[in-house]
Computed example of a mutant assay.
Amino acid sequence: MGILGDIGHFIMVPLYYIISAVLIGWHKLFTLLGLDPEGGAAWALSIIGLTLVIRAALIPLFVKQIKSSRNMQLIQPKVRELQKKYGHDRQKLAEETMKLYKDAGTNPFASCLPILLQMPIFFALFRLLDQAAKHNKAHGFLTENLARQFGESEVFGKIPLADSFWGATPWGAGADNGAVVAVAAFLVLAMTATTFTTQRQLMAKNMPADAMTGPYAQQQKMLLYILPVAFGLGGVAFPIGVLLYWTTSNLWTMGQQFYVIRNNPAPGTPAFKAKQDRDKAKAVKHPEKYASYDAVAEADAIPEPEQRPAQRVQPKKQTRSQRKTGGKPGTGTNPNKGGTK
């Protein structure tokens, strides 16, 4: 199988058990609520439940990502200063830039972590559904009976969760199924649109004006268009159940990001100004609740500058006569004694 196959097996097997356990738990819940255990509705809702559980588990990572992204935005002026200073020395520029990132507690790749961590889960769900549909093969905690139900489940009566846009078209070597093509195309467009909107939301509302130029801004602008296109092109081959997972995950990200940007925006951004305007309006409307708004709320909204240790002031060098008298140069006075010498 090779070393790559061994690594993949080592990663995927635990994910099969985790994903199947969550899916079965939600499936049993929806079955108790009266849904057909073999119907597609119970399994589709279980996939949505799986998405919610995974995204809830990733909230600490999302918070870290937001903080890192904000720090990246705020240090962009310093990054441009380093580029002007060390533009002739690429090695020195790279060293100083990484040192700046470390001091600021940020990482240029932190924004990709939630997506990267979800990719193995994404592929594990893809394989669970694909293997269950094609071979009734059970993985993780799925039994053969549950695997068969999962693989054969259909939504809206005739649209299998295991079918894809590409597989339901004649050029994809599948039967021409207009209903599957329509639903899959809708989910692919929804996945693409939500990916684009999420990135656009971050750039339009939570990036300072001085962070909209430079390498970091160019990287964000490239991702704004590259990620949706990549997901859109790849989405035509994904089963409807997997598209449902990814679209739900994107909707969660949009809502989570909207909440963070609205309530804790980065300083100097349009979202920060909008929050200040809302706070001022509330202070005018309810002065009894916001009596100390100007003195406290504004100060709390602006992060304190980084505290640096005070530099020790070196004493001025004195002559021999000054050291003997303990006085100031040219005065002959001694601060330890009253009067003059």
Rank of each mutant, 00 (worst) to 15 (best):
Q218F: 12
V260K: 00
Q201V: 05
A182P: 03
K205A: 12
G235S: 10
I159N: 04
W171Y: 13
K273P: 00
T143A: 09
P170K: 11
V183N: 02
Y245H: 11
K275A: 12
Q256N: 09
P170C: 05
V180R: 07
P228W: 03
V260G: 00
A204H: 09
A173W: 12
W246K: 08
A182W: 10
G241Y: 10
Y245W: 06
T143V: 07
N264A: 15
W166C: 02
L243T: 03
D163R: 12
L251I: 15
M207E: 12
V188P: 03
M254K: 01
T143I: 07
P239K: 05
A184Q: 04
K158V: 09
T194H: 03
N264C: 06
D163P: 00
A209F: 11
A237S: 12
M254C: 06
L233Q: 02
I226H: 02
T253D: 00
M191E: 05
N250V: 08
G268Y: 14
G167V: 01
A193L: 14
L233R: 01
Y259A: 12
L146T: 07
A211T: 00
V284L: 14
I226W: 01
A190P: 00
P265G: 03
Q218H: 12
T198S: 07
R148T: 12
T248L: 03
K282I: 07
P228C: 10
G241A: 05
F258V: 02
L224N: 08
L243I: 07
A185Y: 09
A281R: 09
G234W: 05
A217E: 03
K158S: 15
S164G: 10
V284Q: 13
L233W: 04
A175R: 06
F196N: 02
L244W: 05
G234Y: 04
E152C: 02
G232Q: 07
V188G: 05
F238L: 15
T198W: 13
T192G: 01
Y259D: 00
R200A: 09
M191I: 10
N250A: 06
P208V: 00
I240P: 02
L233F: 14
Y245T: 04
S249D: 04
K205P: 01
F231L: 15
K158Q: 13
T269P: 10
I240W: 08
A168G: 13
A237D: 03
S249M: 09
